[in-house]
Design a protein around this nucleic acid. Structure first.
Lengths: 131, 131
DNA sequence: TTGACAATACGAAATACTTCGTAGTAATCT
DNA sequence: AGATTACTACGAAGTATTTCGTATTGTCAA
C-alpha cells in the first residue's frame, strides 16, 4: 500500500499515541507504551499494533534499522492540530472560530496569562504576521 | 435502556444530524433527510436509523404524538459544542486554548470582522462577564 | 374498502476501530 | 548450546459505526 499523500485524521486511540510522540520525539514502541500504560490499562501488543497500523496509514514513519524499530510522526504537530481544529470547526461550529473559542473557554476556564496569550495571537493575525 | 444523564459525544454522522437540527429546530426525519440528502447521497432509512439510535443514546428526544415523529436535540447546541471543544482541547492540544485557536485560524483564515469578534469574546472573559 | 403512498421498525451487512493472544525470531545470559 | 528475555508479525475477536433493504403499519383519496 502506497503511503498516504496526506494521512487521514487520527482516531482517538491514535491521537493518544501521537500525543506521546509529540512529547518524546522519535521513540520505540516500548518507550511509548511505558508512558501510555501509566495513563490507562493497555497491553504492549495493543500499543504495537496501533503504531503499526498508524505507520500503514501514513501517520507515522518507521525506522527499522535497529532491532527495536523507531517510530516518528510524519506530520509536524502543528499540521495535525490544524487538520483537527479545521475539521471540528467545519462539522460542529459551522465555521465560526468565535464559537469554537467560546466552547473551549467554557470547557476549561483560561488563566489571565492564557487570555493574554490568546490576545497576542490575535494581534499576530491582525498585523498580518500570520495571515 | 434508561436515558443517559449526559449523552455521549456524538459521532461524525451524528454530528451531521445535529447540525441540521440546530438550523431547523425540532423536525421530522423527512425534513432532516431532505436537507441532508442535498449535501451527500444517503437513503431515507439511513437517516431514520441514525436518528432512532441517537434518541436511544439520549442525543435526541422524540415526540411520537403525531404520525410523523418529531425529533429535537436534547442538549442545547452550546453544551454539545462545549463538550466537543473540550474533548479536542484535552486530547489534541494538551489543554492549550491558544494552540486550538491557532489551529482553527490556520485552517480557515478569519476575516477582519471575525477577528474583532474573537477579541470581543476575550474582553467578555477578562471582565468576568463570562467567567 | 381498497389501493397508493408515506412513515416506522427491524435485521443485518459492511466497514472501521480497538484490543489482545499466540507464534516466531533475534539478542542475551549462564 | 540451551534457557530466558524482548521484540515484531499477524490473526482474530469484540465493539462501534454506518449503511440500507424488507416488512409492517397508518393515512387518505377514489
Amino acid at each position: 500500500m502506497p503511503p498516504h499523500p496526506t494521512p487521514p485524521r487520527p482516531t482517538d486511540a491514535e491521537l493518544e499515541i501521537l500525543s506521546v510522540l509529540w512529547r518524546l520525539g522519535p521513540s520505540t514502541v516500548r518507550e511509548v507504551h511505558d508512558v501510555l500504560s501509566k495513563e490507562r490499562p493497555i497491553q504492549y501488543t495493543t500499543t504495537l499494533k496501533l503504531m503499526q497500523i498508524m505507520a500503514e496509514k501514513g501517520l507515522l514513519e518507521r525506522d527499522e534499522s535497529a532491532r527495536s524499530h523507531v517510530y516518528s510522526v510524519r506530520q509536524p504537530r502543528e499540521r495535525t492540530q490544524t487538520q483537527l481544529a479545521g475539521h471540528l470547526l467545519d462539522r460542529a461550529f459551522g465555521g465560526s472560530a468565535r464559537n469554537l473559542l467560546l466552547g473551549a473557554l467554557s470547557a476549561k476556564k483560561a488563566s489571565r496569562e492564557e487570555l493574554a496569550e490568546l490576545r497576542k495571537l490575535l494581534d499576530e493575525f491582525e498585523t498580518g504576521r500570520k495571515s
